[in-house]
Simulated scan of single mutants.
Amino acid sequence: MSALDVFGAETSVARYWVQLQVRDKLVGGVPSSASVIKGWLKSRMEIGDRDLQELTQKTLAERFPDRQPSADELAQALLESDAAPSINGFKRIPDTGELAFEGRCVKAALKEWANSAYPGTDWDGKTTTKPQVGRPLPKGFRKGLMSTLAERVFIPEVYIGLGVKEPSGVEERIKHVMTAQGPRSSISRVEYVDRPVLTFEVRVHDDFLPLQAWARIWERGEDIGIGSDRGRSDGKFELLAFDRITS
């Protein structure tokens, strides 16, 4: 049951099927669960990661002075330490465990690209008298495209599957930030998936944007990228399809 069913009205929503191919790495930005971090610690211990050596020896001396713990026990002890690593990654689709990119993140990206493509209050197709597509915007409509898109464009999928159940890898990256105490550097760890294909739907109320505007937005998106660490040029993609759904 929906509002259209209740009122017996016709929909004013246009639906588009979108598919894009990430060119290199899609980087996750969601803090990982303890189980994911624990698994990463165990795998790094197995290959003798130098960065974990000091923390491992300290933990062994403090927590297990009289015996050699199992890999699982040691990983749990490392996880509970003050120096435990953090890993940003992806959410997983319930029931299947497939890694996923969130629909809300796609909408946030669309807003960013739209603001970059049309930073003012005018955009291709905006009119108060004779709309090119859909329905006319109100006379004197003054909002910019980013604000208008936020109210009229939606991604129905909560999770967009990436086609894999495990990341392609975990990378350590140096972050440079400015704090009240001056510039600081830190190491962050991120999950990434190599060259995933994302397929999802875009719902547009009143179909207010002409294809000329959509082309400019997606072109800007291809260069800005999607996902985390876009400043390192991760997440750049190629748009494969933007097709109106007629059924």
Rank of each mutant, 00 (worst) to 15 (best):
E171C: 01
A114E: 02
K58F: 11
E62Y: 08
G48I: 13
I37H: 01
I217C: 01
D194C: 08
N115H: 13
E166S: 12
I93F: 10
T199W: 01
E151C: 02
T59Y: 12
Q76S: 15
A77G: 12
T127I: 07
T56M: 15
I87R: 00
R230A: 05
W113I: 04
A150M: 02
K58C: 06
T179P: 04
V27P: 00
H205E: 10
L162A: 07
G169D: 07
R230M: 09
G227D: 03
S188M: 10
L60D: 14
K139Q: 15
S228R: 02
E157K: 04
V133T: 14
R142A: 14
V204Q: 08
T128R: 10
G235Y: 04
L79N: 10
P69L: 09
I245H: 14
L211M: 11
T121I: 09
E10V: 13
E238L: 12
P94I: 09
F200N: 00
L52P: 12
S32I: 00
V164K: 06
S168G: 12
L41P: 03
E172A: 11
A117I: 05
V193S: 11
I217Q: 00
S185F: 08
L74M: 15
Y118G: 05
K130G: 01
A3Q: 06
L41N: 03
P196C: 04
T246L: 15
A61D: 13
A114L: 03
S2F: 02
D49K: 07
R216K: 11
R92F: 05
A215F: 04
G225E: 05
E10P: 00
D194A: 07
G125D: 02
I187V: 14
E98Y: 11
S43P: 00
V202R: 01
G8H: 12
F7Q: 10
Q76V: 12
Q181W: 06
T148D: 04
E112F: 03
E54V: 15
P69K: 02
S35F: 10
I87T: 03
V177L: 13
E219G: 15
V158A: 13
R195V: 08
S228N: 08
F208I: 06
G29R: 00
P196K: 08
S43G: 01
K175W: 00
L110F: 07
K130Y: 11
S35R: 07
T127Q: 12
R63W: 03
S228V: 01
Q181T: 06
G120A: 15
V18I: 14
R92V: 12
